[in-house]
Design a protein around this nucleic acid. Structure first.
Length: 423
RNA sequence: GUGGAUGUAGCUCAGGUGGUUAGAGUACCAGAUUGUGGCUCUGGGGGCCGUGGGUUCGAGUCCCAUCAUCCACCCCA
């Protein structure tokens, strides 16, 4: 072998790919029901889009981006998330000039240079949605409802929905001041990481997991203590919609999203079944982002869900996923001299609307039968010299073992009747 | 980026204190069955023992380094 796959990547083999397809299809169906349309931005973007659109004090931009210079000496970055690219596409294609709001969804790979562990990869996959152009709290609630509906449809149980409001820039500068006042005398007890955050981004100290920091900040003012009347009313309105839909949540004032342009609502869904990387989806409102990327001030909300973590949770909860596809029919020919006829009949079956395969290794009849059994096919069509002369073939039901004779020109129709048509 | 555990057939794993041609189960292929899968039996192919150094008469086994995987911290999906 020349080389192994790069660290933190995975080969999704046919068996698992079926489960992926199922999860993605379920998501697409929900998106259609909620009237979100698909968008497919590129896999890579100019680096400055993420520097400005994600925030250059975030871990993503500081140390996790796959960045390189292309042959035209442009700085290019493999997308670590898709909110900023979607906003860029919205502006670049003048979607802001059409009917508002614009409701979009996406699926696909993202790239972050992290150290891999359970539920964390360097290439991972997200399902996401964004609503651009509406400031109303009902949209926040719709997105959250959509996520919970999706998880429910997959059969996931016992998930925790955490929500919080981080307010607007005015609330945050208020909080920032109060936090710094509160923390200043205790600064020496904080972890080194948080001492660094004290000036740059004190909000992040709130969700530091170090015991010392958590103890100290447990008495600190939180985002909710500093909401202005507008933000306060936005937050209670979101909660009201969720209550009305019967969606359970817990308010978590320590939930602070790492991205710089988040405003008001922040939410995260946690799974207990997949180890330390317990977040299987999250999102929030980002009314400051579009302006930061260069557009007119425009409100936005969105979420992203991790496909790998969803699949891990499903596995952990013992939820069955579809396996690989099985052929309807496998053509076995008993006599090597009739291989041409077998080939023709194979294509006739396919033309008749069945998924069909045959042996391509010139195997003995017994070996063909054995192989047919391994493909999991529902029927085997057996071609022998004697029946062929009469224009007929044997059709064996692999589950029951029962075999009947059918004329060649009605093979596909008769088999379909056996599959779908009662008897 | 920091720390811990683990690397032996495709897969799951054996291989006391270094000592001949490195084993099992399973999977794969073939035969037993001259035109019929699953069960059973028999046989067969398949190993740079993660990689590179070192110690030794001799290393799968001991030492060092390196890479990879898993797990945790950090962060997030």
């Amino acid at each position: 072998m020349i080389t192994a796959r790069p660290r933190g990547t995975a080969d999704i083999l046919p068996e698992e790919a079926a489960g992926w397809r199922y999860v993605e299809d379920t998501f697409r169906t929900i998106c259609r029901e909620y009237c979100y349309e698909e968008i497919r931005p590129p896999i890579f973007e100019h680096t400055e889009l993420f520097e400005r659109g994600v925030g250059d004090t975030t871990d993503i931009v500081e140390k996790e981006m796959y960045t390189f210079r292309d042959k035209g000496d442009r700085s290019i970055t493999l997308r670590p998330e898709l909110t900023a690219p979607v906003v860029r596409a919205y502006l670049e294609n003048n979607l802001n000039a059409g009917p508002q709001p614009v409701k979009l969804y996406y699926t696909g790979p993202m790239f972050r240079y992290d150290k891999p562990q359970a539920g964390r990869f360097r290439q991972f996959h997200q399902l996401g949605a964004e609503v651009l152009g509406s400031p109303l709290p009902a949209v926040d609630a719709e997105l959250i409802a959509m996520i919970m509906k999706f998880y429910g449809r997959l059969g996931l149980k016992g998930l925790e929905l955490h929500i919080n409001s981080v307010g607007c820039p005015r609330c945050r500068s208020d909080l920032r001041e109060r936090l710094q006042q509160f923390l200043d005398p205790r600064l020496s007890s904080l972890c080194s990481n948080c001492r660094g955050r004290f000036l740059r981004n004190p909000l992040r100290i709130l969700d530091c997991k170090e015991k010392e920091c958590a103890d100290i900040s447990s008495g600190a003012p939180t985002t909710l203590d500093c909401l202005c009347p507008d933000c306060e009313s936005h937050f209670s309105s979101v909660k009201g919609y969720l209550d009305r839909l019967g969606i359970a949540y817990q308010v978590d004032s320590r939930l602070v999203r790492g991205l710089d342009y988040y405003t008001n609502t922040a939410f995260e869904v946690m799974s207990r079944d997949i180890g330390a990387q317990s977040s299987i989806g999250g999102g929030g409102r980002y009314d400051g982002l579009i302006e930061a990327v260069g557009g007119q001030p425009t409100p936005g909300v969105g979420f992203a869900l991790g496909v790998e973590r969803i699949l891990l949770t499903m596995k952990g909860q013992g939820i069955e996923l579809p396996g690989r596809d099985r052929p309807d029919v496998f053509v076995v020919n008993a006599d090597p001299d009739t291989e041409r006829e077998a080939f023709e009949i194979l294509f006739a079956l396919r033309k008749g609307g069945l998924s069909a395969d045959k042996d391509y290794l010139g195997r003995s009849m017994k070996a063909q039968m054995k192989y047919a059994g391994k493909t999991g096919c529902r029927f085997v069509v057996i071609l022998g010299g004697n029946e062929l002369k009469r224009g007929a073939a044997g059709v064996k039901d692999m589950a029951s073992g029962a075999q009947v004779e059918m004329t060649l020109n009605e093979l596909a129709g008769q088999i379909k009747k056996k599959m779908y048509g009662g008897e």
